[in-house]
Design a protein around this nucleic acid. Structure first.
Length: 242
RNA sequence: UAAACCUUGACUACA
């Protein structure tokens, strides 16, 4: 059964939704995980209704089944369904709470996010990061900063969320400072920084950043080109593009 | 048997 599950997952991850389903149907025996996989697959591909059907059809459910379905609603923008579903859950673990918290953070409803955060029985790094994100995205930069300062554990996601709050709100000075104080960098934070410069017209700063990039992926290039385009420096954009 | 399969977090654009 484990091997079958792995196969189904493998098909789905490579975009072969139909083959995944066919595999699932052909399985001689299905475990809870098999059903969970299919629910996740459908939800991720945007077929939330199909996912829900599977969820209702399956017999024994575990925590992951509920969380997968919840995430399906949350990540496809069905915030109300997510909330209803969440309220119906008789048992909620940290993942359930984090999923709901992130859904609210992403949707910019800061108050709901805070409410969830307060109601949670426990927190982990993801919970704190999500709240930080909620503050950052809604422009409450001082709050995100003090939250950051109170955090003992900080991984790249935490740094990146803080940085992105500054850059998205045009506080380039602080963004740069955070960037310079980071213990390590990856493509995401570079792009965040480049985008910020580009968006606010500092194309030469963006270019400088870009030149310092250790590794460049397509997203980095897009960010730089976009900056030139927005400023109307079409020939520069073209140069980069070529 | 804390060994193999499933669920939650950061960046650009496009859609």
């Amino acid at each position: 059964v484990v091997l079958w599950n792995a196969m189904v997952t493998g098909y789905a991850e490579n975009g072969y939704l139909l083959q995944a389903r066919e595999m699932f149907d052909r399985m001689p025996h299905r475990s809870v995980v098999s059903w969970n996989v299919m629910i996740g697959v459908y939800a991720r591909e945007g077929y939330v209704t199909a996912a829900r059907k599977m969820f209702d059809c399956m017999g024994e459910k575990n925590m992951t089944s509920w969380n997968t379905m919840l995430a399906g609603y949350a990540n496809s923008g069905h915030l109300n369904e997510a909330k209803n579903f969440f309220d119906k859950m008789s048992v909620r673990d940290l993942v359930s709470w984090n999923t709901m918290l992130q859904a609210y953070s992403k949707s910019g409803t800061l108050q709901e996010a805070e409410m969830i955060f307060r109601r949670m029985p426990q927190w982990d790094l993801l919970s704190w990061t999500s709240l930080l994100m909620a503050y950052a995205q809604s422009g409450h930069l001082q709050r995100s900063k003090s939250l950051f300062d109170s955090m003992l554990e900080r991984d790249l996601h935490v740094w990146s969320s803080l940085l992105n709050g500054y850059s998205a709100n045009g506080d380039l000075g602080n963004a740069k400072q955070i960037f310079d104080h980071m213990p390590e960098w990856n493509a995401v934070v570079w792009v965040s920084m480049i985008t910020a410069y580009a968006r606010f017209g500092l194309t030469q700063e963006a270019q400088l950043m870009f030149d310092r990039l250790p590794e460049r992926n397509i997203v980095c290039w897009n960010a730089l080109v976009e900056g030139y385009v927005q400023k109307g420096e079409v020939q520069e954009a073209r140069r980069v593009f070529d």
